[in-house]
Amino acid sequence: MRIGELARRAGVSTRSLRYYEQHGLISARRAANGYREYQEDDVRLVSEIRTLLTNGFTLDDARPFVECLRSGHSSGGECAGSVEVYRRKLEEIDSEIRTLLARRAEVAAQLCSGCVFKGEK
């Protein structure tokens, strides 16, 4: 399939596909006329990449998932490298949550001190 069809089926732009290709996540064969040609499996790869990026993962994070799918697994998250990325990402998210909770507590404390100052509750 050509780049436009892959983009449509995977729900991304052709520019995104070129970007993924530039970073080695997908690859295309070239037809005699120079057009990129993709395989049916590339729809799944691109969908996996898109889902990961939407959820805050980077292109480098996506690499083990793509490799896992290419090796024949039914899910990109079934391989050890992918599981490690998931664990690292969860640690990052937990850290962000702790930071946000601390910031929230500080803002709430400032609000309460402002309420007491003005005689409000």
Results as ranks from 00 to 15, higher is better:
I3N: 05
I3M: 05
G4K: 03
E5S: 10
L6Q: 03
R9Q: 11
R9H: 07
A10Q: 08
V12R: 00
S13N: 11
S13L: 08
T14A: 10
T14F: 04
T14M: 10
R15I: 06
R15G: 08
R15M: 09
R15L: 09
S16A: 15
L17W: 00
Y20A: 00
H23N: 13
L25E: 02
I26C: 02
S27E: 14
S27K: 14
R29Q: 14
R30S: 09
A31G: 11
A32C: 02
G34C: 07
Y35W: 11
R36Q: 11
R36Y: 07
R36W: 05
Y38P: 01
Y38G: 01
Y38F: 15
Q39R: 15
E40F: 07
E40C: 01
E40A: 13
D42H: 14
R44K: 13
L45R: 13
S47E: 15
E48V: 11
I49D: 00
R50L: 03
L53I: 13
T54V: 09
L59G: 02
L59T: 07
D60H: 08
D61C: 03
A62T: 04
A62Q: 00
R63S: 01
R63P: 01
R63W: 00
F65E: 00
V66I: 13
C68W: 02
S71Q: 14
S74G: 12
S75C: 12
S75N: 08
G76L: 01
E78N: 09
E78D: 14
G81I: 02
R88I: 04
K89M: 06
L90D: 02
E91C: 05
I93E: 08
I93N: 03
I93V: 15
D94F: 03
D94M: 08
S95F: 05
E96S: 11
I97S: 04
T99W: 08
L101E: 15
A102P: 00
R103F: 09
E106H: 12
A109S: 14
S113W: 11
C115E: 13
C115T: 04
V116M: 12
V116D: 11
K118Q: 11
K118V: 12
K118M: 12
